[in-house]
Every structure is written in C-alpha cells, then in structure tokens.
C-alpha cells in the first residue's frame, strides 16, 4: 500500500477506534477485556468440559497429532502468572513464547495478531483478573516431523505477518468494526476457510467454507454467495443467528458454532452483532 494511503488508513482507524472506545472510556480495562475474551473464544479451547476456567482444555485432535491447550490462568508456576504484558502481546501477535520459541498455529494467533495494542492490554487485564489454578497440562502428542517445534520458524516466515488490523478508510465505521471482530478476536476464518497442505489458511478462498474443518467435518461457507454461503440471509437474520443460533428456516446451530454463539457472539452488544453481519454480507464469493 502506498505510504499516503497507509497513513490515511491509520488515521481513519484511530478515528474508528476512538468512537468505539468513547462509550467504554470510563470502564476499567478488565471489564472492557471481558468482551474480547468472549468473542475470542479462549474458553472453547483452554477450559476442559467441567474443568476450571482456562486451566487447560480438552485434547484437540488434528491431522498433525493431538494438542493439549495449556493452562493460561494467572498461576505463576503452571499458568501465565509470571508473564508481562509484553510477553502476552508477543504471544498473541507474533506467536512466540517468552523464550522466543514459536507456537503452533493451533493457537489462532494467526487471527489474534490483528488485535490493537489497547485491546490486547484490556484482554490481558481480564485474563489476569481470573482466579489462578495450579494445574499442569500434558505435552502435545504430535507425529514426526510436526513434533519438531523449530520447523515453525519456517512456517511463520512463510505464512505469518504479525500486523495489527488496519481499517479500510473507504468503508464506514460499522463495517470496519465488523471486519475487526471477524478477522481479529472472532477468528471466524480459522474454521470457515480452507487450508493448504501445510495447514495455513488459503487466503484466496477466505470464508468459502472448509471441506475438512476441526474434527475433519465440513464447515459451511459464510460469504454472500447465495448457494455456498449466506447470501440469502438478511442482515437481521444473521445478527439474530449470532444472538440465539436460529437460522432463517427455524433450525438451530450445532457443532462448534453452538459454542461460538453461546460463549461468544451472544454476549456481544447488538451493535457489534450488526457490525459482524454487515461485514460478512459484504463479502463476495471467491
């Protein structure tokens, strides 16, 4: 992008974020972070069924092997209690541990890197406000050669660009807010986009659906395509789906989406659901 366009984009972004933040300016950081925590779906992976919040999640089975999402409570020994904000920002944006080792993209830093500095600080404040739990989680159980973590240096070099979200100055604030929520904290692309053979998102087919989603099942497309997407849904129908899970035909969501709605989108403000719907319905099929 030419430098002027980029400068404009940053300005527009600052304006958008200022409007968004204005309403929340009086609330403390942890309270603002709670919304990000919900839409980020941290619980879906880091909390086991019936287990303590964020003290480690149920095993995630993938073609590369089994991941055990770690304890991220503020426990200093078994969680992230000794982390600084800079450590957290680095993990979420660069996908690197405090010692510099790369994380597997099973941790969706591939979307979270788009969070703004302010939002990362608020999210960190919220996570730090939760009760510490002392609990060690098992090591990942991955097949060779995926068990070699240093291979991820190459992967990140090929596929990871750790930039925060840049709003599109040609679009209005509602669209930009939706784009931010979907592409950043909501990490919707991680399930709704096909992946290449190295497990990276195929960005030429963003939101076109995934023939082999989590658990190997098919995940539907969510572009404005009337056949393989949600092009026939109205904006209100989509916002309502994100609130209670009802599709336009009266059926109710299942699969991982039920949890994305229950723990995430149903807890957003109406305005944010409308923003997400506005953005999604503007996406033409690939």
């Amino acid at each position: 992008m030419p430098r002027i366009a980029r400068a404009l984009a940053v300005l527009a972004g600052a304006a958008t974020l200022a409007t968004v933040a204005a309403g929340a300016a009086t609330v403390d950081p942890a309270a603002r972070g709670e919304t990000l925590f919900h839409i980020g779906g941290c619980v879906n992976c880091h909390t086991a069924k019936g287990g303590a919040t964020l003290a480690g999640g149920d095993p995630l089975r993938t073609p590369f092997g089994t991941f055990h999402p770690p304890n991220i409570t503020p426990d200093p020994e078994t969680g992230i209690g000794s982390w600084t904000l800079a450590d957290f920002v680095r993990a979420m944006r660069e996908g690197r541990a405090p010692d510099g080792m790369p994380y597997y993209p099973a941790f969706p830093y591939t979307s979270y890197h788009r969070l703004t500095d302010e939002d990362l600080a608020d999210l960190f404040a919220y996570v730090r406000s939760l009760p510490p739990v002392q609990k060690r989680t098992p090591d990942h159980d991955l097949r060779f050669p995926y068990n070699l973590r240093f291979g991820l240096y190459l992967w990140q070099w090929l596929f990871h660009d750790p930039q925060p979200f840049v709003p599109d100055p040609a679009k209005d604030p509602l669209w930009n807010r939706g784009a931010y929520l979907v592409l950043g904290p909501g990490h919707c692309a991680e399930c709704h986009t096909p992946r290449n053979w190295l497990g990276a998102l195929d960005t030429t087919r963003l939101f076109a659906g995934n023939p082999a989603g989590p658990g190997g099942d098919k995940v539907p497309g969510i572009t404005a395509d009337p056949e393989n997407g949600i092009g026939r849904w109205s904006r209100d129908q989509l916002a309502f789906y994100l609130k209670v899970g009802m599709r336009p035909d009266g059926d109710f969501a299942g699969g991982e989406m039920a949890r994305v709605i229950e723990n995430g989108t149903s807890r957003l403000a109406d305005e944010d659901r409308l923003a997400i719907a506005t953005f999604l319905l503007s996406l033409s099929p690939p």
Binding site: K218, E256, I261
Partner: peptide, 22 residues
C-alpha cells in the same frame, strides 16, 4: 426466554449429537 430455549434446549443437543451442517 426464547433465546435461552434455543441455545440451551435446541443448540446444545445439536452441538454434541448432530453432524455439522456443512
């Protein structure tokens, strides 16, 4: 109450017991 009925009554069963609607 409708929202609760849908999420906890319908979706939570579909979540575990029904194939994803690809």
């Amino acid at each position: 109450a409708f929202g609760q009925l849908g999420k906890e009554g319908c979706s939570s069963c579909h979540d575990t017991f029904r194939k994803k609607q690809g």
